[in-house]
């Protein structure tokens, strides 16, 4: 009576994919927001207005793309694992 009822009918990788795919879009945006927030905080602290905001916003955009890249790589790995398991 363990797993059987709820989860085993569903593929384990499917649940992993589901939760990753559900946040891919948000990951890209939240990277930018977090980067900008850190940069603005540093600007207020160091009184250097446009510099830290600009640099960290750029870093945020890069990290947003990196998050999506990592998610996509994991999704591909899961798909390949599924295919090898099926064979």
């Amino acid at each position: 009576m363990r797993l059987s009822g709820i989860f085993s009918g569903v593929d384990r990788h499917f649940l992993d994919d589901l939760s990753r795919a559900g946040v891919v879009g948000l990951h890209m945006v939240s990277g930018i927001i977090a980067g900008t927030a850190i940069g603005y905080g540093l600007d207020v602290w160091l009184d250097s207005f446009p510099w830290c905001s600009g640099i960290f916003m750029f870093l945020g955009i890069v990290s947003g793309f990196r998050n999506v890249y990592v998610d996509a790589k994991k999704l591909t790995a899961n798909r390949q694992k599924d295919e090898t398991e099926r064979k």
Binding site: H27, S30, G31, I33, A34, G35, I38, F56, L59, G60, V62, S63, G64, R66, N67
Partner: peptide, 8 residues
Amino acid sequence: IEVVSHCA
């Protein structure tokens, strides 16, 4: 980049 993405 990693620090920002962890904060995100």
